[in-house]
Write a protein that binds this DNA or RNA. Structure first.
Length: 570
RNA sequence: GCACCCAUAGUGAAGUGGAUAUCACUACAGUCUUCGGAACUGUCAUCGGGGGUUCGAAUCCCUCUGGGUGCACCA
């Protein structure tokens, strides 16, 4: 629509004697001032030495000669804004499209079958799945879905740290606690390993002897010569299984898993190879990269330690090379917390220096997210210690179980609903704001059925769906023959979904979808409360039902893009 | 010390250089009683301070203040 108007405006302006290229067309901030607006007259007034209002009036007069059918009227307002009012038929045609082809409404082909890797979550076996991983998962999954929706071929990748100092610390902790991984279920065992990690970490920090032992163990684990290979294999398996269970609940299915243990040798080789080619240098026994030589904003980093072990940086090099040679992506997106930004920039610079002709660096994109903090200090999991990703999801689910306990569900239904709604509560809290910002997580608000929450959106969706179901029972046919203006505010919002969806994917900002859905759900709920929709006596009832159906479709689609499910009823 | 990021109602957020800064929660005042568990209306912000660019700035530039993060062998 925007393009249509833009072309129309440009052509008219040419006829009126103004040559400015593509004029600006935007949505007005507030409704009631036209459906689209252009401020082009204001921006070109200086160039032509005429008052903006005069220019705008000339353009509008030229337009009036031949208005296209989708425009009902054009006028000049304020200091020279041109406001376009779209025709009733145009909005009805949008509804028609949604009802016929809802799956495709809001799509674009900006990714045009491009291969895109989205790497996210990246938890570390032997350590708990913490809240940061939950954030990365929610954001990465949503971006993957957005890119897919806009035509990309997405590979979901997860890079898990199954080697490194944290593993040595966890194993050391397990050994000190008896050398057995205790627990009856995968989840209990994973929690036990997490506790051993914390325990090991506290020793590592204060006990010099233990620190030395752990460092030796770390080296042996890298070389696969430790005495604890069986323990390592079991611990790795258990934590990975626990992660997998969580991915299933969160609604993520990875196509590709990479492990740090696979990247260690290759990373070290790459660094040595490119040291000979002059990219890396020796320093105090370690091998380092002077990134600031190429870009003053960057800093020097160690890639290989003085005892020959590859650091995260070196492993990241191997991972990048592996991803590019294996999958040949047009774009490789990695999401991590902001803390990783500076060093990822260094790694990217190293890649640029190593492969100047392959364009790897140009195809890499690093998306960072903020931290999650809790609204009040009262937030703690049932276990009484740190809030892990798993405990947060579980607590949300239980809270929803309590809220819905008086509703008519079988126990199994309630489980399914509570899981979908609990996950939505947590994920929505993450995705509702700009991903670069820290988020303040308010547990009570996140699970609330009204307000800016996932459950609210799910609830509005099930309401809209219920309308369609009820109308079938009342045998009222859905058709678009008798439009009514009471649904116009909703239709205007529906019309903007493609815009929100495009903006979200272009900026890699799922919150544009979230904000949009809130607006749509709000307008629908208002309509729902003030109008009787299903009414055999009302000739416009069919139209209202059709609008409800379109709202249900778009809400469902939008929630899907955020990675949220809509339960059949709630 | 250097680098990067952030600052918008009581709270949490949105905002593409454009007209009267939007949404949600809370609070207070009023209206109303549902197709699915309430909804609706009103009140509450000189967009951290100061300069600048522009016809026009929450948005761009500079500066100050206040927060966050990162800077050599963790990831």
């Amino acid at each position: 629509m925007k393009e249509l108007l833009q072309t129309f405006l440009e052509e008219t302006m040419l006829k009126a004697g103004y040559m400015v290229g593509k004029p600006e067309i935007t949505y007005p901030k507030e409704s009631g001032r036209g459906d689209y607006m252009s401020s082009t007259a204001l921006s070109i007034s200086k160039q032509y030495g005429k008052a903006p209002k005069v220019i705008a009036e000339t353009i509008v007069a030229e337009m009036q000669k031949a208005l296209p059918p989708y425009i009902s009227s054009v006028d000049v307002a304020g200091p020279g804004f041109i406001n376009f009012h779209l025709s009733r038929d145009y909005y009805t045609s949008i509804l028609e499209f949604i009802l016929r082809d809802g799956e495709h409404f809001g799509k674009s082909d900006i990714f045009d079958n491009k291969k895109v890797i989205v790497e996210y979550t990246q938890p570390n076996p032997f350590k708990p799945f913490h809240i940061g991983h939950l954030m990365s998962n929610a954001i990465g999954e949503s971006i993957a879905r957005l890119v897919e929706f806009h035509g990309g071929q997405v590979t979901r990748a997860n890079y898990q740290g199954d080697i490194g100092l944290h593993v040595a610390i966890a194993i050391y902790g397990i050994v000190k606690k008896g050398g057995q991984i205790l627990g009856n279920s995968v989840s209990e065992k994973a929690n036990f390993i997490g506790e051993c990690y914390s325990y090991g970490n506290s020793i590592y920090e204060k006990d010099e002897v233990a620190k030395a032992e752990i460092d030796v163990l770390n080296k042996k684990l890298y070389e696969k010569t430790s005495d604890y290979t069986a323990l390592y294999d079991e611990g790795r398996k258990v934590t990975l299984e626990a992660f997998e269970a969580l991915y299933a609940i969160l609604g993520t299915k990875f196509d590709k898993y990479y492990f740090e243990s696979e990247m260690a040798t290759r990373g070290a080789e790459l660094v040595r190879e490119y040291k000979d080619k002059g990219v890396f240098e020796d320093s105090e026994g370690a091998i380092i990269f002077h990134a600031e030589k190429h870009n003053l904003k960057l800093h020097t980093r160690v890639f290989l330690t003085s005892n020959g072990l590859p650091l995260y940086d070196a492993k990241e090099l191997a991972l990048t090379v592996t991803k590019f040679t294996e999958l040949e992506p047009d774009l490789s997106i990695v999401t991590t917390a902001v803390e990783q930004k500076d060093y990822m920039d260094v790694v990217t610079e190293a890649i640029r220096q190593m492969f100047p002709s392959e364009n790897y660096a140009e195809r890499m994109e690093h998306i960072t997210h903020g931290m999650m903090r809790f609204a009040t200090g009262k937030m703690s999991s049932r276990l009484g210690n740190v809030v892990t990703g798993e405990s947060l999801i579980r607590d949300a689910k239980e809270a929803i179980m309590t809220i819905t306990k008086d509703r008519e569900f079988t126990h199994d239904e309630r489980e399914v609903v509570a899981e979908a709604v609990g996950v939505a509560a947590v994920k929505y809290s993450i995705l509702r704001s700009n991903i670069g910002m820290d988020i303040i997580y308010d547990f009570d608000k996140s699970i609330s059925f009204d307000g800016d929450s996932g459950p609210y959106l799910q609830y509005a969706t099930t309401r809209a769906r219920a309308i369609c179901r009820k109308s079938e029972e009342a045998s009222i046919k859905t058709h678009l023959h008798n439009p009514t203006d009471v649904t116009l505010p909703i239709e205007r919002i529906l019309e903007r979904f493609p815009f929100a969806s495009l903006r979200a994917v272009e900026e890699r900002q799922p919150h544009h979808i979230a904000t949009y859905l809130m607006e749509l759900a709000g307008a629908f709920n208002f309509f729902y409360a003030t109008e009787t929709i299903i009414d055999a006596e009302d000739p416009t009832s069919s139209y209202k039902i059709a609008v409800s159906g379109a709202v249900a479709t778009v809400l469902t689609k939008g929630l899907h893009l955020l990675g949220l499910k809509v339960p059949a009823k709630m």
